[in-house]
C-alpha cells in the first residue's frame, strides 16, 4: 500500500449524473477510481439513511449528484 485512497459512495441519479458517468466512460475519459457508483432512480430517492449506512459501513465520503 503506497498512499491511502478514500472510498467514496456516489449516489447518482439515473437520468442525470449516471448518464454523465456513462458518457464519460463512452468518451474514454479518465477520472479518479475512488468512487463506487450506486445508481438511484432519481435524486428524490435519496434518504438520510443511505449516507449514514454508507459511512457506517466504512465509506470515507458520500457524494450525491442529481
Amino acid at each position: 500500500m503506497s498512499e491511502w485512497e478514500p472510498k467514496i459512495a456516489a449516489f447518482l441519479c439515473n437520468w442525470c449524473s449516471y448518464g454523465a458517468a456513462d458518457l464519460a466512460g463512452v468518451g474514454r475519459m479518465e477520472y479518479p477510481p475512488n468512487v463506487r457508483v450506486i445508481r438511484i432512480p432519481c435524486t428524490g430517492r435519496m434518504d438520510p439513511k443511505f449516507f449514514l449506512a454508507a459511512l457506517r459501513e466504512g465509506a470515507d465520503g458520500v457524494w450525491v449528484s442529481g
Partner: peptide, 16 residues
Amino acid sequence: RLQFSWISSAESTKFV
C-alpha cells in the same frame, strides 16, 4: 464528507 452536485447527462466533462 457529504457532497452534493448537479450534472446533466450530457455533461461528461463536468462529471470528470
